[in-house]
Design a protein around this nucleic acid. Structure first.
Lengths: 192, 192
DNA sequence: CGGCACATTGATACCGATCAATCGGGGTGG
DNA sequence: CCACCCCGATTGATCGGTATCAATGTGCCG
């Protein structure tokens, strides 16, 4: 089992046609269980997006850790729930949101996740994703994502530049996205 | 925690605009943990699609069961992995597959899942989903799904009628879908 | 027999893909 | 240190797949 300590990574799958779909972003603190031992074959791949440092925890250590520290086990379980919630939110986005809404929604999600791990500052946060990567995550074309980003910038909702995002008008962004933060709040409410 | 014994159900979310997106189908044998106790608020809903019978297992019983029978715990964990794999496959479908490919892929998935629980017979299986439900699961319009189904029927790949599907040419269907059954095989390979 | 939900088909509009070209910036080699 | 180069960003023109709107058909159930 791996835990991202620094940098960003993603889960993705390449289709026979050569197109890529990213299914999840991994930020510092996110665990990525490859389940290597359990599976006959992996159905997708994981890749670092930026230079990253990753901790490796053996299955035995993990089992021992979770048995001796029930609160760690609970935290892992809770993190699992959040990950599932994120996946469901992505399905909703891809199925029923317009391209602009999708972009706004993803930025909202990533902002909150970044905030949870203390990466945000004054309405902006580092986002080391190229437009090509964003396109592959949102199921659209690089050129089209470029136009959407331009619109969002002109609307005054958010501005994305190389390496970072600025939330110019968070309320407007949430409105555009139709963002419902329930599915991410879990982690916060778990903490106390 | 609930377990579907008979009939079909689905997880779904209604967006502010009124559109619905279905995120998962639950077939007999599938567990649906609502995590009600853990969550401050549910971020989606669950609904029966057909008349269904459902078993309810209390959290305590569940915990006891999993502690006393490690193989049951392992089975639950394995089922969990399959569910995640299915969600990832849905994300890939919505993001990078055409409407025809999406329909074909979903039918492949449902066929294999139905086969795993012994519901299939000679290239066909019961599918109690209206075209409206399929549309909400695949992120498309009822009228468009109708046209896609017509094409698939004319192509000789599959035929969907009220209540059931016939796989006319499974190989062709798998080709159209670009279906890679790895992510479902897990369950099969788990069984000794 | 009537009503209702779902299935089917046609005509048209629009969003996002595709093709193509240019721009810009940061790193590399000379 | 500078010129080159390459990848990512940007913009324009056009095409195509789905959505949308609208009407009709069909089977089931009361």
């Amino acid at each position: 089992m791996f835990v991202v300590l620094e940098g960003w990574a993603c889960r993705y799958k390449i289709l026979p046609t050569g197109t890529r779909q990213i299914m999840a972003f991994l930020m510092p603190g996110d665990a990525c269980d490859l389940h290597v031992k359990l599976l006959a074959e992996m159905d997708h791949s994981i890749q670092a997006i930026t230079p990253a440092s990753v901790a490796i925890v053996s299955k035995n250590d993990m089992a021992a850790l979770m048995q001796q520290h029930p609160n760690i086990a609970a935290a892992m379980y809770s993190a699992q729930l959040v990950d599932e919630g994120v996946m469901r939110a992505w399905i909703v986005s891809m199925g029923r949101r317009s391209s602009t809404e999708r972009v706004a929604h993803l930025i909202c999600e990533l902002y909150l996740r970044a905030r949870n791990i203390g990466l945000t500052g004054n309405g902006e946060f580092p986002l080391p994703l190229s437009q090509l990567v964003l396109a592959d995550a949102l199921g659209m074309t690089p050129v089209h994502i470029n136009r959407v980003l331009k619109n969002l910038r002109l609307t005054g909702a958010m501005a994305l530049k190389r390496g970072g995002v600025t939330l110019l008008d968070p309320v407007k962004l949430v409105q555009i996205a139709g963002f419902d933060e329930n599915y991410l709040h879990r982690r916060l409410r778990q903490l106390p």
